[in-house]
């Protein structure tokens, strides 16, 4: 487990970076929305930006897209410094920020055509085809002629996604893409993200839904109170977050003694004990126990879920507020 202030887990240096921020800070009047955000988005990764509402995810994304000028800090997007390089970088970036924004009196198709007219990478004669393709991709082809006004929340979200996918992108930024979607819609979004990932597109997904991030992302950045508290590859983070071994044994006392001697931390839990795997490994623990003559009935690897990780990262402050901001769908023992 690492935090940004101590030793951040970052991608290997040789790997190319799609976006990077250094010491990002944004003040609105006297309130600091975002502070000391050092974010790395490796090329080809699907980065889940995780954090409760108000943790600074959207502000960070808006700064990444040049919509908001940081008070301090540097941003590099697709190799260009922002906001000055926005005109070179942004054509390759598709974004859905703060919910879909379209004109209610136009149909879905007309809305996309208007978006397409302002896409620098789209040639005029290809606009029509690009729009139809995007509509098809998000499953809106049937409803494309209807006015946006009459769209359901899910359809609006899909149209927003379609606008982000009008042009083949190097980076797609999706801010809370599953907001308002039913489970089928959510699956659809996951499929699209997976599809983008397969094609090598870098994706940045922000969400307050842990399950969503866990299911779709290769990398995670956890934001809390306007700063990054952890980031790195999802698997690494979870492992580093301290996995444990659940051992079922009748000789709890003997087992604890043996482990203490071997300087392995453990505590009784239920019908057995829980062994922290920090600085050791499952085979080593079992070997120690067996050598001490403890009968091991069952040993289960207890992997930290994202929820647990997240809870631990934000514990102290969230204690009094509860976890209301964080949706708890699944997680726990795996």
């Amino acid at each position: 487990m690492t935090t940004s202030t101590s030793a951040p887990v970052t991608a290997p240096a040789k790997q190319a970076v799609a976006a990077r921020t250094r010491g990002l800070r944004k003040e609105y009047g006297s309130t600091v929305a975002v502070d000391r955000v050092d974010l790395e988005l490796p090329e080809g990764a699907v980065l889940g930006m995780l954090g409760p509402n108000g943790s600074g995810k959207t502000t960070t994304i808006r700064m990444l897209l040049g919509l908001v000028r940081p008070t301090q800090g540097e941003i590099e997007l697709l190799g260009r410094p922002l906001p000055d390089g926005a005109e070179q970088a942004l054509p390759h970036v598709g974004a859905l920020v703060e919910g879909p924004g379209f004109h209610p009196f136009l149909s879905g198709r007309e809305n996309l055509i208007r978006c397409a007219a302002f896409e620098p990478l789209l040639e005029k004669r290809k606009i029509k085809q690009a729009v139809e393709d995007a509509l098809e991709r998000v499953g809106l082809a049937q409803a494309a002629h209807r006015r946006y006004r009459g769209y359901s929340l899910g359809m609006k979200q899909r149209l927003g996604l379609a606008a982000a996918l009008l042009v083949p992108r190097k980076l797609v930024v999706l801010d809370e893409p599953t907001n308002g979607l039913d489970p089928a819609g959510t699956r659809e979004i996951r499929r699209i993200i997976a599809d983008l990932h397969d094609r090598g597109t870098t994706v940045l997904v922000s969400s307050h839904l842990l399950s969503e991030v866990e299911a779709t992302c290769t990398h995670v950045a956890v934001l809390h109170r306007g700063t990054v508290v952890a980031q790195g590859e999802l698997t690494e983070l979870l492992q580093a977050g301290g996995s444990a071994l659940q051992v079922v044994t009748p000789d709890v006392e003997t087992a604890l003694g043996a482990l203490r001697q071997a300087k392995i931390s453990a505590r009784p839990l239920g019908e057995g004990l829980r062994v922290e795997l920090a600085g050791t490994s499952a085979p080593q623990v079992i070997e120690t126990l067996v050598k001490a003559g403890v009968g091991v009935h069952e040993a289960t690897r207890w992997k930290t879920g994202l929820e647990e990780l997240f809870a631990r990262l934000t514990e102290a402050e969230e204690a009094e507020r509860g976890m209301s901001a964080v949706d708890t769908l699944d997680g726990g023992p795996r």
């Binding site: 942004l90 054509p91 920020v97 209610p104 978006c115 896409e119 620098p120």
Partner: peptide, 11 residues
């Protein structure tokens, strides 16, 4: 309508 953002990131 939120469309101004869309235009600005087009860009």
């Amino acid at each position: 309508h939120g469309t101004l953002r869309g235009l600005l990131v087009a860009p």
